[in-house]
Amino acid sequence: MIRDISIQNFRCFENTSISGFKTVNLITGKNNAGKTALLEALLLGGSPYPETLASLKGYRHESEELDKTLPERAWDYLFYNQDKSKIITIETNTKNISDQTNSLFIKIDDNKLIESNKLIDTNKYIDFPSTKSSNLQIESVINKDTFKGKLIANKEGILGTWFKPLGKDNIPFIPSSFVFSQQQIADEYDKARLSYREKEVLNGLRIVDSSIDLIEYFGIGSPMLYLTRNNEKRLPLPLFGDAINRITVIILSIVNNNSNILLIDEIENGIHYTNQANLWRVLFHLAKEFNVRIFATTHSLEMLTAFAKVGLESEFSDLAAHFEMARSVKTGQIIGIKRDMETLEYSLSHDRRVRGE
């Protein structure tokens, strides 16, 4: 589980280190203070593979057609100030039985020849065209083992060499604007059923909405989940609104988690303030039970207040930390100001500003 992170030349981070992550971490700050960028750095640091970088472009809704038209611009937004002459470095330290350090190095290297003039894409060899392209070199050091790969942007799209070790699952990332299909949700519920964890999903939803009695999976046509409330007739999950859909995705991302990390951007989206404390209780309970470290961002004072309240409950003591993203007055660099729950609650109760104001 990630304990701390060091980031250089990635997005808005020129040189930032943040330490002391707990089991459940809530990140606040002004717009463009680095909240989402920190989640992206944690994603790359926890899963330092070319596949992760390719997935990140999808999470950002970056245009595939633009990458094909202007491949030399495909990687601009990864780099601090879009300066591709510098190397991106993301280093994470974990707290396990034995401490482990993972390092990820990313650089543009358009001048070197590609070995054999070929790249691997979905296990097929593809000729690398001589037209405009941009070569992203990737080097990962994982527990002292070094892996090298590359991603190429050209008129065909994004091609690459993959090296993710077998058995390493992707880190679940729930972006603020990313919509999961009903089939994706149904498939994840099927995984939970195979692991005998479907009761955790039902219990989690019932904490937020006590009227839910039953979850069912139907694969006729397009697979979908159905919920039953108060012994009424079942209804498809989409009819229960954004909050229940989003909470279902979050719970499934914990109970099916093999990476021990979950990233949630703008966790408050769709969640009414009266349900926020109950949601945090679900997340604290599941994170503790399934050994998953949660990193979430929020703009909401209500969500932050509910987090502090639940984090102070005896059952969850010493599990939570709050990080405020802000710029150092002295250096201008982005920093993460850590608060434990007692300090956070004191600041909130005394009207101290804790969201980057």
Rank of each mutant, 00 (worst) to 15 (best):
T52L: 03
E232K: 14
T297G: 10
S134I: 07
K338C: 05
P50N: 06
I2N: 00
F290M: 02
D83C: 07
D109T: 05
L43E: 07
N9I: 03
I88L: 13
G58H: 01
S63A: 08
R246P: 04
E232T: 14
P129E: 14
P71Q: 02
I106G: 11
I142M: 06
S349I: 11
L42I: 15
G336E: 01
I261D: 01
E345H: 09
K330E: 13
R246Q: 05
L104M: 07
E156M: 11
R229S: 06
T23V: 09
E198W: 02
S19V: 05
V179D: 06
V310Y: 10
F128H: 12
A192I: 04
F240L: 11
R206D: 00
D187R: 01
S211D: 11
N93D: 05
G167T: 10
L119I: 13
A306S: 15
E232H: 11
R281Q: 15
L279H: 01
S253Q: 02
H61T: 09
G219N: 14
L214N: 12
R293F: 03
E302Y: 14
A54M: 10
L66E: 12
A320G: 14
G332D: 01
F178L: 13
L39E: 12
K112Y: 03
K148N: 15
F323M: 04
L263N: 00
S181H: 12
T89V: 09
Q100W: 01
P223E: 10
H322G: 10
T298D: 13
I158M: 14
P48R: 06
E313R: 01
I126K: 12
E315N: 01
K309D: 13
I334N: 03
N231T: 08
N123S: 15
I335A: 03
V310G: 04
L214Q: 05
I27M: 11
K144Y: 09
A296N: 02
E72Q: 12
Q276D: 06
F295L: 03
N93E: 03
N123W: 10
E65Q: 01
G45L: 07
V354I: 12
E40I: 12
I90W: 05
I97G: 00
E91G: 00
L235N: 12
I2E: 00
L227Y: 13
A277M: 10
A321G: 04
G204R: 00
G332P: 00
D99H: 02
I207C: 03
N170E: 15
I220F: 13
F105M: 10
D340C: 14
M1W: 07
H299C: 08
I138D: 04
